[in-house]
């Protein structure tokens, strides 16, 4: 199949591993799914600490179950990416620890307090879920299948995150103020979650033409703002003054001043050159290398198990 035919036939779940697809498609799909899978892993590096911090036994269980789900999503996504035949999971994980693997901007910022739990678990996860729901209609069938399972689970994550926000904002004044302060810091990053405005996006057009993406960054961001700004306000959070966001009664949309956002930081992060990137990727590298001996040991075991059959 050449790329023109791919564009012509592109549609929900249109292509499977049996199709002879051009390299351009396979590489673009790999880049997109690898990014997604990496983000599940690196999100875990933030989310993990909330298990230790959780202020009730049931919350602790929810936090640890949520991280488990995210790692489960990484498993599904790396497998979906592997089916494209471009890279193995091992190669993708090696790239991640070498600082070559890309992942979501929000996961380049280390966290340290429980007040950040709803930022990650409600707003960032909510944004991710919005995006993932649209990817059920992606053209790469194994990716869509992964999204079926991911979206099934995500409802728990988002409601868990909202419940943490609800609890914090219904507690002491001091807690409310700390959540607001945390929100002020996180909100611009969350708005940037959906990437640059359409006009500045590198990969958007092609990904949409071949059906990998079905909805543009701007549309996703709009849907997110429409759903999540009223939620933030419901709990008494105020949007920071920057970036400027105004509700337009006539179009029933929130209008965002894109230039108010720090795109330089965004692009630095996109290159893994941010200070937080070093910290997060460094932590990943350290942890992944520390257990390399186990993987080597299991590889040797696997080989020893295969040997007798190979001799047949």
């Amino acid at each position: 199949m050449d790329i023109e035919e791919v564009k012509e036939r592109a549609g929900p779940r249109a292509f499977s591993p049996k199709d002879d697809l051009p390299e351009e498609y396979r590489k673009a799909a790999t880049r997109m799914i690898q990014f997604h899978a990496n983000s599940e892993v690196m999100g875990g590096y933030l989310d993990k600490q909330f298990t230790r911090q959780a202020p009730s036994l049931d919350r602790k269980l929810a936090c640890t179950a949520k991280v488990q789900d995210e790692i489960g999503h990484a498993q599904l996504l790396y497998r979906a990416a592997e089916t494209l035949g471009v890279k193995t999971r091992e190669e993708m994980l090696d790239e991640l620890e070498a600082g070559e693997g890309k992942f979501l901007n929000c996961f380049h910022y280390p966290v340290d307090s429980w007040y950040e739990a709803p930022m990650i678990d409600f707003f960032v996860d909510g944004g991710a879920m919005r995006r993932q729901a649209t990817l059920k209609a992606t053209s790469w069938e194994p990716y869509a299948h992964a999204m079926d399972k991911v979206c099934f689970e995500e409802g728990f994550h988002v409601k868990h995150g909202e419940d943490i926000l609800r609890e914090l904002m219904g507690s002491s004044r001091a807690n409310q103020e700390k959540v607001q302060k945390t929100f002020d810091v996180w909100w611009p990053r969350i708005v940037q979650f959906f990437g640059p405005p359409n006009k500045d996006s590198k990969h958007n057009d092609f990904a949409q033409q071949v059906g990998l993406k079905t909805v543009s960054n701007d549309e996703l961001r709009q849907a997110f703002l429409n759903a999540y700004i009223p939620k933030a306000e419901k709990y008494g959070l105020e949007l920071p003054e920057v970036p400027k966001i105004e509700y337009d009664e006539r179009s029933e949309r929130y209008e965002l001043e894109y230039d108010d956002l720090d795109w330089e930081e965004f692009w630095t992060i996109a290159k893994n050159d941010f200070q937080g990137s070093d910290e997060q990727i460094g932590s990943r590298r350290k942890r992944h290398e520390a257990v390399a001996w186990v993987r080597e040991s299991m590889d040797a075991w696997e080989t020893s198990q295969r040997a007798p059959q190979a001799a047949d």
Partner: peptide, 12 residues
């Protein structure tokens, strides 16, 4: 060990 286990499956 969450996120730090040797492989994704063993982590789960």
């Amino acid at each position: 060990w969450q996120i730090y286990a040797p492989t994704i499956e063993s982590d789960l």
